[in-house]
Each structure stands twice: as C-alpha cells, then as structure tokens.
Amino acid sequence: MSTTDDTTVPAPPPATPGKPEKPAKPKAVPVTPIVPGATVAGRALIAVVAIMTFLAALTIGSVMAVRSTAGAWRSDVTREVTIQIRAGDKAVTDAQVRAAVDLAQQTPGILEAHVLTETETGRLLEPWLGAGLDYSDLPVPRIVVLRLDPAASPDLARLRRTLTDRIPTAALDDHRTWSRRLGAMAEGVMITGFGLLALVGVATVLSVVFATRAAVATNRTIVEVLHFVGARDGFIAAQFQRHFLKIGMQGGILGGVAAAALFGGLMSLPRFGILADPENPGIITWLDPGWLGFGGIAIAVIIIALVTALTSRITVYRTLRTIA
C-alpha cells in the first residue's frame, strides 16, 4: 500500500453539490450541445428549408396579390355604369343627353352623372382612330358616366327601362358582362392559385420532412449512445427537437424574409420610375400581397419551423423503437 503521500490525494468529490468544490482547474469548459450544430447535413437542411420556404412564400404572396387585384378591378368596374346615346342630330342628341342625366340624377344611389366632353371621348377613341382627329363630323356616341354609391344599390333595371322608354337611342351599360368575366377570371385565378399553394405546401412539407429525417439519420449514433447511457426517450427527443426547431427557424426566416423583401422591392420599383402606373404612381397594386400575404408568409415560416421540429421528434422516437 502506497500511502506515503496522502496529502496529494485528490479530495474526494463533494457529497452534496452545495459544498464549495475545487475542480482540478476551474477551466471554463464550454458545454457542447448534445446534437452537433454546424454539420454538413444541418447546413444542407437549412438550405432546403430556406429554399422551400422562399418558394412557398412567393406563392402565398402572389396568390394574395392577384386576389386583391382582381377584387379591386371588379369593384372598380362595378362602381360605374355608362349610358350611351347614339349620335344623331346635334340638338336632339344634346336634349337626349340632358334628359338621360336628369333621369339618372333622380335615381337614388347614383352619386354623379358626368357627360364625357369631346376631348374625353376623343381620348377614349384615340387608340383606335389616332390622335388629332376632329370628331365633330363623326357620329360618335355620347357617353354619360354614372358613379354609383357602393353602399346603396341603385335600381339599374328600372333606370334602364325608363331610359329606353324615353330615349330609344340610349343604352345603359352596367358592365355586367365585363364584371361577370372578371369575376370568372378572378375565381379561376384564385382556384388555380390555391391549388398551386396547396401543391407547393405539400411539396414544402414533404421535402422538409425528408431532409429532416435524413439529417436526424446522420445522428443515429448520438441517439443510440444517449439511449444506452440511460437517457429517457423524452430527453433525447427534446434535444433533437430544440436543435431542429432552431434550424427550421433559421431556414424559414431566411426564405420568408427573402420573399417578403422581394415583394417589397418590386412594390417600390415605381418610385424609381420602373413599372410605374401613371394613374396610380408609387405603387403597383398587382404585386402587393397585402397584410394577408405578408401575414401568410409569416405563418408559413412558423409552420415550416414547427414541421421541422416535429419531424425530428417523430424520427427520434422511430429510431429509438428500432434500437430496442
């Protein structure tokens, strides 16, 4: 028995953690995460999540932008109706126009009746007939634009009946055909958009699920060793879930922010004179996803991060079942 130098025997570890202890060296040992952080598989997964989130966010933003644009067009179109009066003798036509304006103004729900001036009519015809033409000689129909109160719904059917009774050469165009076509188109676009969204959503979830499973599989040894040193299944799953939630958030935010920035950038292009709409300077409505779109992108990011975390958890449990 070599007990000659008992003084140098290391002090036994303290029985209770409360007792101040003297570790060999209070060297700060950084605690390595149980699931390694910067692995090739981890970075690949971030890339997959970021790309898929970006695509999903683009789809959501576009669908929402198209939806609100179609809606806006439709309400623009239905906010106005026009009365056309075929041109005839100038004096007669003028009287007919005045009569039509009176009739319209007597109809409740019509805010304003505006007779297009010659120049305004000329501008409308310019694309077909060219500029600088003198329209006074031509039998150009006269047009009265009626602005409707969006809150009330004026009785356009009655107005049409009285109008055609009194002025046989007048016709009321409530843009119904247009509105119906636009409506059908908007519906078609929406159905296609949501179908696309569903497909992209499924593709996103599937690729995130498979990429996560592959990334967890590269850590199988860790699952096994943790299992064999007595870690509870819940502890192991929690380690992976935390790690993969972080990966999912990183990738998701990367993709989501990139898509949102892209929309923001496109929307601000007109300010630099690109894609500008002269009637509505500073904004291109057909690219504005609206708060619904941006909100949808944020929700997609959260869902994708959760899918990543949940998949890792399920995969760990499945791995554990194959070990036992």
Partner: peptide
C-alpha cells in the same frame, strides 16, 4: 461508441449530463 463531437471529458460526463445535472456539479468527479 464515443461521440466524435464531444471531448473525452464530455463523453465521459454524458451519463451524468443526461440525468439533467449541471456541469459544475460533476466536473470534479
């Protein structure tokens, strides 16, 4: 079956770590 991303110290400490113990409480041991 040592874990390659851990140091020797962390590998040996793993069974205590999975019990939820603080690093300071087992460092000396």
């Amino acid at each position: 079956r040592l874990l390659d991303h851990f140091t020797t110290y962390e590998n040996v400490a793993l069974p205590l770590r999975v019990l939820g113990k603080e690093e300071a409480s087992y460092r000396a041991e």
